[in-house]
Each structure stands twice: as C-alpha cells, then as structure tokens.
C-alpha cells in the first residue's frame, strides 16, 4: 500500500473540485473494495477523498420514482419497507450481494463502481490490461472460469461483479451525476462500458464526476420478480451467473418483461430481445425456454467457462419460474 493523503470535504462541490484537481485521487465511501485493491497494490491513489459523510444518503420517493442517494448503505436500502414493497427485485439483488457485514459498509454508489474480481486484475505480478494497459490479458488463455461470454474483447474478458447493478439495469434506473461541467443523467445501461480497446475504463464517468443518486421508476414489477444468483456456496460468493427477472402478468399472459444477467459481461447484461419474446406469451416453461435461447444468442465461451452457455439459459428459466411460481 502506498502512502496517501486523506481529505474529507463537507460538500459535494468541494469533493468534486478536489477530485478534478488531482488525477491521482480517488473517492472513497464504504471502502469495501478500494482498500483491498490498495493493500494489494492494484490501485495506488495519492489522495483519498472521503465522501461517505456527504449528505447524499437519502432515500426519497416522489412522482412514482425512487431517488436513492449514492451514499445510502446497501443494507439500508435492502431493508427499506417501501423498496421491499415497490422494488422487490432491487432488494433481492442487494441481499444477494456480499455478506451482511459488507452490506452494512458498502454504499449504493460504491456498489455500482466495484472493480472486477478477475484474479489477474488483483495480482500485480500477472498481466492485466485493465490494471496495466498493454500488459496483456492474463485470463484470455488462463484461468477464465468466472469470465465473460458476452461483449468481451481480446484485451479483456473480465466481468462486472455487482448484483445490484443487474437489477438496476433491468429496472431502467438512471444515474445522477455531478461533475466539474455540471450535472447530468446517465441511463443505467450506459454507465458501464464494454472493454473494447480500453479495458482500463470501467464506466462512462468523466474525470471528477461524482454519482449523487440513482433514480428508479416504480414500474408494475412488484409481484412477479426474482433475482437468482447461482454461486459456489450459499452466501458470500460472486455469481457464476445471475438473473434479474421481472414480469407483469395478466391472466397468466405476460404484459411486460424485464430480464438481465450478471456474471456474463463487462457490464450488467440487459436481455432486450429475450424480453420482447416474452411479451404477449403465456407464462409457461416453454415460453421461458424460448426466451432463454434468444438471450444466449451470440454467447461465446473460453476454456473454463463453457458451463455458462448451459447454466445461463437454465438460470434464466429458473428465475422466470421462480418469479411466476410456474412449477
């Protein structure tokens, strides 16, 4: 771990200024990811700007929209009565992430900005284009059991690790950002990017931009939802594959559908074509299987993650079954 300075501005504006002024600075909130990365020498910020006490932790609801402050804790949001009632998919996804101790520390903004868990990214003795552009992708020909089947490049095949993000992309959330050039709104699906030739860049955030909140519209998805996370132990493990499924049903006919996957790409992976295929169909296993097949179009596996080509569609079918109680 390198030596660093620590500042704790009291206003968002001051935090943004401090960050914009210093390229080698980082925001820190819960620190559940950044501190690990610093201890392993993966990230070496010279200045930490503590934003955890900025007044950005409110959870508000107006005009059928939830506005969740970026400094709200994962645990607080997951346990919120209104969230449980109106956004149960988000609550399920949050509770599927990490462990109770981590959810008590981790913030909503920090959760969506988690770095990948790719082991090559974490070990400074191994090549990784995300950590050290140009050094090569260790996972491409290496241990790639946890890696992407969609949207990867020959520079990076890592996956985005957050569960919450999978639910937020499915729910059409919007990220609220303040930066040196003012405020802007980013549709959640555009926050994270695919690796392409610049895997070092996880998101579309500009230097100095601070996520202040995320807005989630209250949709019709209050009942037939399920977040399914397939992992190697019952808790505290990253997803092999996860699925956020939300349906609006009328007389067992699907009126509207949302579907997204985690653990399969460099960003939470929305399955728009599969969603379209569900609409207007009866909620049956056959319908779900057809959607799962569409969802997997274009998927490609590497040496150790071919199982995802089968586990992916299976998980989609199971998530939809769980969401609709189809036996």
């Amino acid at each position: 771990m390198n030596q660093f300075q620590y500042v704790r501005p009291s206003k968002p504006k001051a935090a943004i200024d401090a960050r914009a002024k210093d390229q080698n600075s980082q925001f820190i909130a819960g620190g559940t990811n950044l501190l690990d990365l610093m201890k392993r020498g993966v990230m070496n910020p010279e200045r930490l700007i503590d934003i955890s006490r900025l007044p950005l932790d409110k959870l508000e609801r107006e005009n059928n929209t939830f506005r969740i402050g970026s400094m709200a804790l994962n645990a607080t949001v997951a346990d919120d009565k209104q969230v449980l009632e109106k956004l149960p998919l988000l609550a399920q996804a949050l509770n599927a992430g990490a462990s109770a101790q981590l959810r008590n520390m981790a913030t909503i903004g920090g959760n969506m900005l988690q770095r990948t868990r790719c082991p090559y990214f974490y070990d400074t003795a191994l090549p990784c284009n995300k950590r050290e552009p140009g050094s090569g992708c260790g996972a491409l020909e290496g241990y790639n059991r946890m890696h992407a089947i969609f949207g990867f490049s020959d520079k990076c095949i890592a996956v985005h690790p957050s569960d919450m993000s999978v639910a937020l992309v499915a729910l059409d959330a919007t990220v609220l950002v303040s930066g040196p050039k003012g405020d802007r709104r980013i549709p959640f699906g555009e926050l994270h990017r695919l690796p392409g030739d610049m895997p070092q860049k996880d998101t579309t955030l500009e230097p100095g931009e601070l996520i202040t909140a995320v807005e989630v519209p209250e949709g019709p998805f209050t009942k037939n939802v399920h977040y399914l996370k397939v992992r190697e132990r019952a808790s505290y493990a990253f997803a092999l594959v996860s699925v956020a499924a939300a349906l609006q049903l009328e007389n067992n006919i699907i009126k509207d559908a949302r579907l997204a996957m985690g653990g399969v790409a460099h960003k939470p992976w929305r399955l728009t074509e599969a969603e379209k295929s569900l609409v207007g169909k009866p909620a049956t296993e056959a319908t779900f299987q057809a959607a799962a097949a569409i969802a997997m179009q274009g998927a490609k596996a590497f040496k150790h993650n071919a199982y995802k080509l089968k586990l992916g569609p299976n998980a989609i079918v199971q998530a939809l079954k769980n969401a609709t109680n189809v036996a």
Partner: peptide
C-alpha cells in the same frame, strides 16, 4: 496458472 506457476485463487 501453470504459465506463471502462480496461484490465481489467493483470497
């Protein structure tokens, strides 16, 4: 990872 002779599951 046998190419490097280094463990990749270390936490």
């Amino acid at each position: 990872d046998d190419r490097f002779g280094r463990y990749v599951t270390k936490d």
